[in-house]
Amino acid sequence: MFQQSVRQFSSSAVAQKVGCAQVKPVHHKVRIIKKFLSPKYPELKYEPHDIRSPKYKPYLTTPDRVQDHYFNTLQSDLLLINYRHGQQPIYGNKRRQWDMTSPYHLNRPLRKPKGQIVPSPTIKPRTYENVPRLEGVTLNCFVKDAKLYPAQAISAALQLQQITGCKPKAIFAKTNVPNWKLRPGMKMGAKITLHGRDASQFISTLTEIVLPRTRDFYGISNRSGDRYGNIAFGLTAEEVKLFPEIENNQDSWPQNFGFDITLHTSAQTDADARILLSGLGFPFTGSERIPKTLLNDLVSEEEEISTTQQ
């Protein structure tokens, strides 16, 4: 029972007294959104997808030709093309544990992966759950002359907006190169990332109108890609003139700006991404290099024998 204090007659008073609050302090953990407390401005309290909200933006207003084409024809073909029976995951180069030789290794963040700084992802076997699809398109327009003529960054942004119909973001110089008179923070152009219908629209104009009419375009290089399924290529200022939005209004475009296009796909490797993009109408050219690790992704025979014996 409770220890009897010498000085006090009552023992229960001491026992029931607590040194700290027994109720968990939640008042600072639950965020209070003040707009919900006041009865004012009820229209500002709706969710953005609610049609009564001022933030409401109609979506899926028109059919998406490219998306339909993907789901109707490409997806099942891609599943078949990418499938290999008995495929094994190819483990990526991950962060390593410290060899606890020093007491300071305790709680230290994990060691860098061998030979690289960022860990590489594990490539999983291709199933019906990870059929590659196009996720987005990024247009990046870096104007070299914008350091001398800042107005060119604005017209480059306007050009991107004219082509895609979406609002571009400004891009700024990051590095200091005294020889080029480039300083960090200079506005150097614009970029947009397109998703969904906007991306499909852009892709269809690109593959049906612009690329077939460009001179000396034989296809996207088969060497292009960031290893993990994003393929990039560039358009020069001459090729940009072929976009119908600009071609039909040439007088207002005394100057055009070339830009880089990155096609983001959910494919795990560049080789898979290229197969998908060829189905969307992008030609590819040149010789293709495929890493050896990707070629040997089946169960080896020794392993197979050992599993059957068990």
Binding site: L74, I81, S204, R274, I275, L294, D297
Partner: peptide, 20 residues
């Protein structure tokens, strides 16, 4: 089986394919 199970990297949809 071995022939059927070869990888298909480098395969392309024909250039004549069109989105309907």
């Amino acid at each position: 089986y071995e022939i059927a199970n070869e990888h298909q990297f480098g395969k392309r949809f024909p250039l004549e394919i069109r989105t309907p």
